[in-house]
């Protein structure tokens, strides 16, 4: 069982398809979960995964063992997903201002009877703008400023979209609990 570093070396030196496959097998499930969170359809998530990995493999040499390999890949995946969202008008990160019902039973704790898959499904149902902001802030842990830069929107918009995303999620979770 080779370590990641050895596999990376093999990939860079020989463009070794076997080593690439091994790396892919190790990380594809984690990366696919990220793609799923950003992309509304399964097919687009697969597209994002493939393009993301294509860039990872072509740019492996620029990963100079600084920090974690997985973190590096995750960042590429996230940025790749976002630029795909941005480039496709179908998922334009529009600021659709939809009315959100006031928290009628503002439960912001999560019950135990919901699993990660359900949560991801709920996140994916969010409108593209809300979804990206929520993913970036709550899960990837970027700051408002960074998100504003990434999505090319202003910080106030980031805040309001995040707020609305949270409200929608909380409402949906409340419904889910019932």
């Amino acid at each position: 069982m080779l370590s990641d570093d050895e596999l990376i070396k093999k990939c860079i030196q020989g463009n070794d398809r076997q080593a690439q496959k091994e790396l892919y097998n190790r990380y594809s499930a984690t990366m696919f979960a990220i793609c799923l969170r950003y992309m509304p359809t399964y097919e687009d998530a697969e597209d994002a995964l493939v393009t993301g990995f294509t860039f990872i493999f072509t740019k492996l040499e620029s990963f100079q063992n600084k920090g974690s390999f997985e973190g590096w890949m995750k960042r590429i995946m996230v940025n790749n997903a976002i630029s795909m969202l941005r480039s496709n008008s179908k998922y334009a990160l529009t600021l659709n201002e939809e009315a959100i019902p006031d928290r009628q039973s503002g439960s912001n704790t999560i019950e135990n009877n919901i699993n990660a898959k359900d949560i991801i499904a709920l996140i994916r149902q969010l409108p593209a703008g809300y979804r990206s902001v929520f993913n970036l802030y709550a899960i990837e842990g970027y700051s408002y400023e960074e998100i504003a830069g990434m999505l090319n929107i202003n910080i106030g918009t980031v805040r309001s979209q995040l707020y609305k995303a949270r409200k929608i999620l909380q409402n949906k979770l409340t419904e889910h609990d019932r």
Partner: peptide
């Protein structure tokens, strides 16, 4: 709330279909 979501979602893994590797290759 964010942390709870993050905690639940972070470790989530879902294998893509086999066709993905073929496309990637």
């Amino acid at each position: 709330f964010d942390r709870q979501i993050q905690k639940m979602v972070e470790g989530y893994r879902e294998a893509p279909s086999d066709a993905c590797w073929d496309q990637l290759a």
